[in-house]
Write a protein that binds this DNA or RNA. Sequence first.
DNA 1: TCAACATAGATGACGCGTCAACTATTCCGG
DNA 2: CCGGAATAGTTGACGCGTCATCTATGTTGA
Lengths: 152, 152
Amino acid sequence: MTRWLDDDEQRAWRGYLHMQARLTARLNRQLQDDSGLSLADFAVLVELSEVAGGRTRVLALAEKLEWEKSRLSHQLNRMRARGLIDRQECPNDRRGAFVALTPQGRTTIEAAAPRHVETVREYLFDRLTPELVAALTDITDRVAARLAEDED
Amino acid sequence: MTRWLDDDEQRAWRGYLHMQARLTARLNRQLQDDSGLSLADFAVLVELSEVAGGRTRVLALAEKLEWEKSRLSHQLNRMRARGLIDRQECPNDRRGAFVALTPQGRTTIEAAAPRHVETVREYLFDRLTPELVAALTDITDRVAARLAEDED
DNA sequence: TCAACATAGATGACGCGTCAACTATTCCGG
DNA sequence: CCGGAATAGTTGACGCGTCATCTATGTTGA
């Protein structure tokens, strides 16, 4: 009784899987080559650079990124080892900690961002019509809505 | 001189990143819970189950999957340890090897496939109109074409 | 024939992501 | 005020993916 995918759905699904894998790999490599960052590093640095003082609580950061706290913890360890961020004690709540951008972290993200955006544009948006951009938004919104239903 | 993303592009891009991360995680978890497989396992088993005799040369498999051979090699090691596949010597070319589905591998993929497809349908295709499915195909084709230009 | 090169594939190190378990602190009801 | 639950965050193990390197075999051309 399985409802298999029809031909159009097959093409869409295989196309999606293929694009997803290649695009992610491409963006990762571009960031790595140009700035020594991974996509994960980039995501963390972007969030940090957008908060006042480049400094937040770890859990607040995890929520913004929608990452599990353990994932973030591992990531922050690696980034701290490379001098991109710093940890600071939290006096109010001594269980917690602040994460802060280091000057090097800020320099790095400011240098990396323009080239990363340019790459996203080159591979994705430069190839899409405004209608397709709207369709992409629609698709992702619908799927996100379905995914959100699980989180109850 | 950076051409930043405009609002519509921002929404599309953030939506894509969000959907991509969540959908992949969801599908991985479903497969893992229902069948003890990862998406990577599943991809390998699907290809193997589609070739005659459930048996191919490693490099041919890598090409079908569009995976690097080292990635595949690691993957096959893990799968062999779990009894899903088997390695066989290649008499013609003694550098090479065949990979073969084990009976257990075949049973596993045949049990896993229907539920996996059902999940893909539930999260993706059940939420999309035929127009959006067509748009998704269009988008992925365009991006794939750009990505393919690099491989010269 | 034999040295150079190409090909098939394996391996080790390291970053990434998940899960389960753990520590340390804070909160809250009796 | 105290004991149990909740919260903040860490840790270790393990699968996944990439890169660089290595081994063994096959191919080719002087």
